[in-house]
Design a protein around this nucleic acid. Structure first.
Lengths: 238, 238
DNA sequence: CGCTGGTTTGACTAACATCAACACCTGTGG
DNA sequence: CCACAGGTGTTGATGTTAGTCAAACCAGCG
């Protein structure tokens, strides 16, 4: 839960009692292996899933056989909090790594909402942050070059992982294959590979299957036209 | 307000009393002309804007001078309900046409949230629906061809406008220029123009600056790989 | 060892962007 | 009434980015 509270505290004032209330909502813990479909699209849902450890992706499949990630989740993120109001998902959630999950029944969310509007609003805020990230992804897919897309994603993840306490802002574990990166970025594996090589050649990143180091954050941000305001890192009002 | 209630009723059971409660939240009505910046990115906000009439777009500007729409709003949509929890926007909201707006102060939303968790949840649901639409846009930008993108957008809008009571599912007012369409679709004006011509040539659409007719909805849906489940047209749970 | 999944390379192609005109319409002021 | 301006739509020639296809390479692993 630590990553989740770090994420919350970054944007809201949360008392110990409120943190306890969050903990009380968790009904169950679960583990899943890598490359599993954790939540299936379209199925009625009665619980939401908080990611404690590992990486998840929101995936949409296309008829052509290709697929597109519409979001990535790192520890501390809710994968499907939106299913609380929508009742089902329009996408799958799949595990990229082995994951530890905390399960929060919708009934308890409903209770919380009635008893504690302030916490409800914080949860609402989390889904709105997801949406803000998604908007920025839309911009990436629509307007940024492959080089800028890769750079932008790395800039985003370094911050999100830092918030979760899993990066120093430069180096972090990076469990995705180039194939999965391609699914993320709307590119092909081949082109992702060439793009990464270009970033390496320019001395901007170091990357292998397990870890990234951003060797020149300023240059990466510049290439990506990265502006972190969409991550809403400051305290939210009231 | 009629379009807004149609939208709500489509997905939730809303009593007359609840509709009245919604109406009571509106503090003020406003009018804006076409091509105005209605809400500026980054500015602290203390109210949200419900679109009563006209079209709005969520816009992100890039350094290169190009811009990307990350969402379109038709009558009945909240343009910036997410500012209630986030406090400011990561994008501008601009008017594509003359618009009538209803202004809802955040203080009243907060009140409502405390007094009526059910309505709060319905509002939360609206922001989650926005996000679902945005995910689908991400897929369009990342994976669909220009032809499929245009077709997909038309399919989406015909349904959203039908829900709002502004389309029969085939024909609707369409106030966007090809330039604005390009901003929407992550394409250039030139390419949008060629794509539209292709759709016309195939007898699938009829389109001028003021109106669209979808001549062959089935073919358009097929080209777009359109699946309306992301619009959550059925009743939400509880 | 010989698989297997992931990464890398090269040759070729397709889709869309870019640049530059031009046509058309509408509103405006002389 | 006409001349003109500005926004919109259209066309053609050319350039660039990323996709496609196919194969080789490489490391970890049973």
């Amino acid at each position: 839960m630590d990553s989740h509270f770090r994420k919350l505290r970054r944007r809201h004032d949360v008392s110990a009692a409120e943190e306890a209330a969050f903990c009380d909502m968790v009904a169950e813990h679960r583990r899943v292996g890598p490359d599993e479909v954790v939540i299936r699209a379209g199925e009625p849902l009665h619980e939401s899933t908080l990611l404690l450890d590992g990486w998840l992706a929101r995936v949409k499949d296309l008829r052509s056989g290709s697929r597109q990630f519409t979001g990535l989740h790192v520890p501390g993120d809710f994968a499907d909090l939106h299913s609380f109001t929508l009742g089902r998902l329009d996408h799958e959630v799949v595990s990229l790594t082995e994951c530890r999950l905390a399960i929060v029944p919708h009934a308890r969310l409903k209770d919380l909402m009635e008893r504690n509007p302030r916490l409800a609003r914080i949860l609402w805020s989390e889904t709105n942050l997801d949406a803000a990230i998604n908007r920025e992804w839309t911009v990436s897919m629509a307007r940024r070059s492959a080089l800028a897309r890769v750079a932008h994603l790395l800039c985003e993840l370094s911050i999100r992982l830092e918030v979760a306490g899993l990066s120093d802002g430069m180096t972090f574990d990076f469990p995705m294959t180039q194939n999965e990166l391609a699914d993320c970025l709307g590119l092909t594996t081949v082109h992702v590979n060439r793009t990464i090589q270009e970033l390496r050649k320019r001395g901007l990143i170091q990357l292998d299957r397990r870890q990234v180091t951003m060797r020149d954050v300023a240059a990466l941000r510049n290439i990506a036209e990265f502006d972190d305001s969409y991550l809403y890192l400051g305290k939210a009002p009231l």
